[in-house]
């Protein structure tokens, strides 16, 4: 009898589950490409300080705007700094800040959304209207305000980005919770007399976790773009720390005769965003959520 084989799926450990998801993701071409780009960027972010061929802040007026050569692979910028060194180092800050920013966004957005979805009624109404109000404020304006008041340190940027990108997650988490909340197993748990906390933790989170994680992954790429925009405007990382947004901003005026100084950071930034997006999509598909047919609310 082969029946037992069919039912053999035992409860798996988290590691086994994760590795299974990653294998499923990598089995699609788009997922494989996305994952490789993302992993490449992450590895680069870790090892770049050790492999950088030059000092990123060494200014040399004699080497201004050199075209790519064997010594300076991606050429030099208007201050004579090595573009290759600055490019491979430029992703570090952005990646770190936005990664922790996304975690914060996931945490507060997800929990608030689930809570609103569960309790409903007046509290839900009030909270959601506040979230709507925040959504209607152009985030970059608000970010500029915060940054100019509190400075551009990491301690300010991470929570600020986390807050502004969490608003969208509130809506997704609330919608996902609404899908689950009407199911009888929640009614059953309520009728047994479980506490709200227990219902959120045991019954709701396992069922909405996937949707929220996928949304968080998408927010990460948006946040990266947002953070680079801030840097581009001069409100992100302060010079001379290498950063893609800042590099693009500095070199954009010289694009007509020193294209290399701007191409490298652009490729870095866009490849990372594409990588995250593809990974998030493959992640969603591996979890059985089809983003193409089910748009987030």
């Amino acid at each position: 009898m082969k029946l037992d084989n069919i039912y053999k799926e035992e409860k798996k450990s988290a590691v086994a589950k994760l590795s299974e998801i990653i294998i499923t993701m990598a089995s699609r071409p788009s997922g494989l490409i996305g994952l490789s780009i993302l992993v490449f960027h992450i590895i680069l972010a870790f090892i770049s300080p050790y492999i950088a061929p030059h000092d990123f802040k060494a200014i040399d007026p004699t080497l201004m705007l050199q075209a790519p050569s064997a010594e300076y692979w991606f050429g030099t910028d208007d201050l004579g700094r090595d573009v290759f060194t600055r490019t491979i180092l430029g992703g570090r800050t952005a990646l770190t800040i936005t990664f922790f920013g996304s975690l914060i966004a996931l945490l507060w957005g997800g929990l608030l959304g689930i809570f609103c979805g569960l309790v409903g009624g007046k509290i839900d109404d009030v909270v959601m209207r506040i979230v709507d109000a925040f959504l209607s404020i152009p985030w970059i304006l608000a970010m500029l305000l915060i940054v100019s008041l509190l400075g551009t340190s990491t301690e300010v940027l991470i929570p600020a980005l986390g807050f502004f990108y969490g608003k969208g997650i509130v809506r997704v988490a609330r919608a996902a919770t609404h899908d689950v909340i009407a199911k009888d197993f929640i009614v059953s748990a309520k009728a047994r007399g479980h506490s709200n906390f227990s219902i959120i933790w045991n019954e709701i989170i396992p069922n909405v976790r996937d949707a929220i994680l996928v949304e968080g992954a998408m927010r990460w790429s948006w946040m990266l773009l947002g953070f680079s925009s801030l840097s581009f405007l001069g409100f992100g990382v302060s010079p001379p720390t290498p950063d893609w947004g800042l590099m693009i901003s500095n070199a954009r005026g010289l694009m007509s005769f020193a294209y290399w100084a701007v191409i490298a950071p652009i490729v870095g930034l866009s490849s990372l965003i594409i990588g995250i997006n593809l990974t998030a999509d493959a992640f969603a598909k591996a979890l059985g959520i089809d983003r193409s047919t089910k748009a987030p609310v």
Partner: peptide, 10 residues
């Protein structure tokens, strides 16, 4: 409940 698909947490 009526529908065990909905009354058991998947």
């Amino acid at each position: 409940f009526q529908n065990p698909d909905e009354s058991l947490n998947p």
